[in-house]
Design a binder for these strands. Structure first.
Lengths: 173, 173
DNA sequence: TATTGTTATACTCTATAACTATA
DNA sequence: TATAGTTATAGAGTATAACAATA
């Protein structure tokens, strides 16, 4: 069993040289995608035992910190289409972690965490801290902060500016 | 019509305050995902007229720079499952951009770009440079390089180290 | 036996349209 | 008329198993 990851076709009796990635090596999009997948994988591994996905964590977190928001407010904040948010909140409600309660506007629901949901969220927050530390271990805390700043500087003008927003983003990690 | 993007429920006659994102604001995974989606959106917009996706560009680029590789080598390099690579290369072949040719090992194909594919790739490379410049405009070239370095420092230990690799990544941008 | 390409298939994520009940 | 939630649905992207041809 050879080691995997970044394998460049130099394993077995194979004469081919390493693969030339060309401008992919200097591509922000490619680097971002690789990083995002690696970080999410670590998140999923960390949260697997509690059966919580990045999207679920982000929803629990936002409801926990903003009790009483309606579905559209939460889904807009997390860039989740309201149609897709239904199944998400359904699952959390079925697990007894969140609940839809009557709002003054009878078209909508006010969202709250249950006691059980608040308790789980504390565990998730602790797990998340572990996850973030693990991820940032290779670069250290100062560079981690630097990276966060660069990412938001990069992202802000691309999706927050005059351009109209479209893509969905129901995730955490 | 109000402006969209980063809207925080302060538009219409709505009394709710801004949404508290809590630790999401400091989450590398969340920031990476937002950045990756924003950059890919810019990529897709830039390449839409030529009907080329990030994954297709990455495949054309790798074949162009490494003519004669077999399917498994290209798909491994780009972290695309070989089963999923079939439809990808099918489409490129159907468009007359790439071709499967007989290899010495008769189980496999050697992949090449056609003349048309090489010509298109030049255009794509130019477009990609425009795209990268647009994306990096907000942070400048020095910070762009810094960001790339931080991303690879972050990614390497997470997917290249002792941990075994799994997730797919057929993309560019 | 193992590898290469392939097919079939399934599951998740994301997107759009259209319905209902309220406003 | 417009909004909140919902349903149905369709398209990507990704994952696994199994097969035929070849090594």
């Amino acid at each position: 069993m050879t080691r995997k990851g970044r394998r460049l076709a130099a394993d077995a009796g194979d004469t081919s040289a390493e693969v030339d990635f060309g401008q992919l090596s200097q591509s922000l999009g490619y680097a971002l995608r690789r990083a995002q997948l690696a970080v999410f994988k670590n998140f999923r591994d960390t949260f697997a035992s509690l059966d919580v996905t990045p999207a679920q964590y982000s929803v629990l977190l936002v409801i926990g910190r903003n009790p009483g928001l309606k579905q559209t407010q939460v889904s807009d904040a997390l860039n989740i289409k309201r149609a897709n948010f239904v199944a998400l909140i359904d699952a959390l409600e079925r697990r007894g972690l969140a609940e839809r309660t009557a709002a003054t506007d009878r078209r909508s629901y006010a969202l709250y965490l249950t006691a059980s949901g608040r308790k789980l969220l504390k565990t998730l927050d602790a797990l998340n801290a572990v996850h973030e530390d693990k991820v940032a271990a290779s670069i250290g805390q100062e560079r981690r902060a630097q990276l966060l700043a660069l990412l938001s500087a990069l992202t802000a003008p691309l999706d927050g500016g005059e351009i109209d927003d479209e893509s969905e983003m129901g995730t955490a990690g």
